[in-house]
Design a protein around this nucleic acid. Structure first.
Length: 554
DNA sequence: AAATTGCTCAACCGCGATTTT
DNA sequence: AAAAATCGCGGTTGAGCAATT
């Protein structure tokens, strides 16, 4: 399709004829040293024929020699691409089959944007095809407010990742020694795209959805994944990204940051999660924070700079409580204290540069769809709430189990139209598993655990995170190697956090400085730990090896 | 019927990795 | 060992087509 305007000739023709036909049309690069201007743009059938002829004679490879031997006025790179994507035999043309699509989704969940590797699993398909397919699929799904991956694919990828890192003798340290970072890398890279479907996932650098998912799957350790010293072990080339004030391109150093520059990244969340929905009106700042640790976006990854908010300091998306269409009563009571959060919010958020950040995260063009999905979620939630109200009126204002965004998301997923996945996971079962696996702290029940108990008593959790794992996690942390632990380690270690808000406040105080610390402490103190936001937040903070080490400073 | 918008796909570009000189 | 050449990958762009307004 397309790019046929330059095509001439009807197939094979004598070589000199073909060559002459090559130079009378199309774009040409500036002449090379040899004085030959290489052609750019769409390939003609004549060129194709020459290239095929060349490959027939000389085989693939040595693409730069094509021009010398065949007179084809194309650079080697272009020849290789043309051959690989269009001319080589056994190429499958046409739309992807359902099986192929399914495979692509699964592969992407495991590999991320490794198109070439994915193509290896799809005979006859090229990386370019897969890439194009995926990119259009992303756009479609995001526009539709759907998660990129079906829940069961998330589950499978995570499960496989965990199994891979947990089975056998491959303990965390073995992994380290093996320089085998690929598994966590893959998981974090690839499931981050699904961050938007998870409830209570703040758009924070350093907190990816995949990590959230990890948490839900089994451990509150998930926040620790985001330590740049863990995730970026392979990528960070210098200390800059770890230190405040670093103004270089974090994105280039640590792929995790990319998600926060993705203007599309919020759409699914807005559609699904709504907890992070925000209206473009400034009044939204008065909204409650649904973020896990609002304003802390830069700390975990070491990019925090109170004096220099950057574009990476992503403005959290909050629901607009002033939106007349938004009936937050159905959302239940979320226990953050708005004024306090506002103060932090105001501090953390830099004034949006004109046309800058706002345009990234606030995407008015999709608000219609978002409203629709939001409304649907709200309606579904209300129905559930009514049902549960009949059975029990004992829920406290802080009881998030009744009408939290979590429920809404679950409901949304349940209504996603996938009764049961091929892997045996329904959307709702995913959430069930997420819930039941969480809150495995051996010390105190986390907020998530509280949440779990009220929801999951009828279904015992398949908790793969044993107390031994938790113990090991503690040991690892205590021995000061926490900053080098791999994400997969954290995943399997189980919970390890101190839910003590004071500890968290102190930690943050250390980082923020006195001016802000008091505010932060007030905020933490005034927030019920049963709050999902702060419960998770505390987990987050205390799970940050970076933070916990700082907190131990004199 | 014309204009606009969105989608698809081929091709280009830059960069890092690998191989060759 | 260092430099140059080559290869391969992933991100991005833009032309053409189709659907919609």
């Amino acid at each position: 399709m397309g790019h046929t305007k330059n095509e001439k000739g009807n197939g094979m023709c004598p070589k000199d004829q073909m060559v002459s036909s090559l130079i009378d049309d199309g774009d040409f690069e500036a002449p090379t040293e040899g004085g030959v201007a290489l052609k750019k743009g769409p390939w003609t059938t004549a060129e194709d024929a020459i290239l095929m002829d060349y490959v027939k004679k000389h085989g693939e490879g040595n693409w730069n020699a094509v021009q010398k031997h065949s007179g084809l006025l194309r650079c080697g790179k272009s020849c290789r691409l043309r051959w690989a994507n269009h001319l080589r035999p056994n190429l499958k043309k046409g739309a992807f089959t359902q099986e192929e699509e399914q495979l692509i989704i699964e592969l992407h969940a495991k590999m991320g944007n490794k198109w070439a590797r994915m193509a290896a699993h799809l005979p006859g398909r090229t990386d370019n095809e897969i890439k194009n397919y995926w990119n259009t699929r992303i756009k479609r799904r995001q526009r539709a407010g759907l998660p990129l991956y079906p829940p069961e694919v998330c589950m499978q990828a995570l499960q496989e990742s965990h199994n891979t890192s947990a089975v056998g003798d491959k303990g965390p340290h073995d992994i380290l020694q093996n320089d085998s970072y690929e598994i966590p890398d893959v998981v974090f890279d690839n499931l981050k795209a699904n961050q938007n479907v998870l409830p209570y996932v703040p758009e924070l650098p350093g907190i990816s959805a995949s990590s959230m998912l990890m948490k839900d799957l089994g451990s509150s350790q998930y926040y620790s994944f985001m330590s740049p010293t863990i995730y970026c072990q392979k990528r960070l080339r210098g200390p800059a990204a770890i230190f405040p004030g670093y103004t270089g391109s974090v994105k280039s150093e640590c792929p995790l940051f990319e998600q926060f520059e993705d203007g599309l990244s919020n759409k699914a969340a807005q559609s699904y999660g709504a907890p992070f929905l925000i209206g473009p009106d400034p009044a939204a700042k008065n909204s409650q924070s649904f973020g896990v640790f609002q304003g802390s976006h830069s700390l975990p990854n070491g990019n925090f700079s109170a004096s220099e908010p950057t574009l990476e300091a992503v403005k959290l998306e909050l629901p607009s409580f002033q939106d007349p269409e938004t009936d937050f009563s159905s959302w239940g009571t979320l226990s953050c204290s708005p004024p306090l959060l506002e103060s932090v919010d105001a501090f953390i958020q830099s004034p949006p540069p004109s046309g800058g950040l706002e345009s990234d995260n606030l995407t008015p063009h999709n608000s219609g769809l978002l409203d629709a999905v939001f409304h649907e979620a709200k309606t579904l939630s209300s129905k559930k709430n009514h049902a549960s109200d009949k059975s029990s009126n004992s829920s406290t204002p802080g009881d998030i189990t009744e009408s939290s965004g979590f429920n809404i998301c679950k409901t949304a997923w349940e209504n996603c139209g996938e009764p049961l996945s091929p892997l045996g996971h329904s959307a709702s079962s995913l959430f069930s598993e997420c819930i039941s696996a969480s809150g495995s702290s051996s010390d105190e029940p986390s907020s998530a655990e509280t949440f779990t108990e009220s929801h999951q008593k009828s279904k015992p959790a398949d908790n793969v995170f044993t107390p031994e794992m938790q113990k090991e996690a503690r040991i690892q942390l205590d021995t000061g190697h926490s900053d080098t632990l791999l994400a997969s380690d954290w995943l399997e270690q189980g919970s390890y956090y101190d839910p003590d808000q004071t500890f968290m406040a102190d930690t943050i105080a250390t980082l923020l400085g006195d001016d802000l610390s008091s505010e932060y402490k007030n905020m933490a103190a005034g927030t019920s730990i049963s709050s999902p936001e702060w419960g998770l937040g505390s987990c987050a903070w205390n799970n940050m090896p970076f933070v916990s080490q700082i907190s131990e400073l004199p």
